[in-house]
């Protein structure tokens, strides 16, 4: 079987599991929305400030929701020894990594779309350069999903994985949050030229972690 078919097999399986369980829809999405609302309540006296810091708040909400999505992705594998099934499947480690990354990225992109609408509505934010936001969003999401999948499998076999995943993941993806926030600020301000260096940084980060994951995930899965 080709790499692409194996990737799609794993991603399709994960997305089907999420579509049935609706954990992303019923828990992760509301969690992200609650985080956005809490920021709105905390900064309510100054709506100007809220609009100004909207990109940063948006990406903090996305990152916290991503931690849940990653934990969920590997909690599913821990039930009924499914991770053993994945290892016995004969699928290449790189395929499993890319498939799980793709599934998490799809969920996060949907989440970002909804949260983005929430930011526009609740934070009174004007969007001027959609293309920048889309490019930066996709690059940042792939980076977060790839990093999350890598650290998710690292913690998969541990009883402490729920607390370990955020501890490992959040510091590593801090550069993504920084780059995505700056790119979004430029996109919202309608100054795409200021966004491109950050989009390039996000793309570099995504490629770097995709590469590390493709090389390392198989070995990490064996010891999970």
């Amino acid at each position: 079987m080709s790499l692409a078919r194996e990737v799609w097999l794993v991603a399709g399986k994960d997305l089907r599991v999420e579509a049935r369980s609706r954990v992303t829809l019923n828990q992760v999405l509301p969690f992200g929305a609650v985080v956005l609302l809490l920021f709105a309540f905390a900064l309510d006296p100054d709506r100007g400030l809220l609009s100004e810091v909207a990109p940063g708040l948006f990406w903090v909400a996305v990152l916290l929701a991503a931690v849940l999505a990653v934990s969920r992705s590997f909690a599913v594998e821990a039930e009924h020894g499914a991770i053993d099934g994945l290892r016995l499947s004969g699928l290449d480690g790189a395929s499993v990594f890319l498939g799980k990354t793709l599934a998490i990225a799809v969920q996060l992109l949907l989440l970002e779309l909804v949260l983005g609408i929430g930011v526009v509505v609740f934070y009174d934010t004007a969007v001027r350069s959609v293309a920048v936001l889309v490019l930066a969003g996709v690059a940042a999401t792939v980076g977060i999903a790839a990093t999350g999948t890598l650290f998710g499998v690292l913690a998969a076999g541990l009883r402490t994985r729920e607390t370990l995943v955020p501890l490992l993941l959040l510091p590593i993806v801090a550069p993504v949050m920084l780059g995505a926030t700056r790119a979004f600020e430029a996109g919202l301000d309608g100054v795409p030229s200021e966004a491109w260096p950050w989009v390039q940084l996000l793309a570099l980060f995504a490629v770097l972690y995709l590469g590390v994951g493709v090389l390392a995930f198989g070995s990490l899965l064996e010891d999970a």
Binding site: K13, R16, V17, R20, S21, V76, E79, H80, G81, A82, D84, G85, L88
Partner: peptide, 12 residues
């Protein structure tokens, strides 16, 4: 391999 667990996914 048939172990103690089914190696399957609850929601499928």
């Amino acid at each position: 391999f048939m172990g103690h667990d089914t190696l399957c996914y609850d929601d499928l």
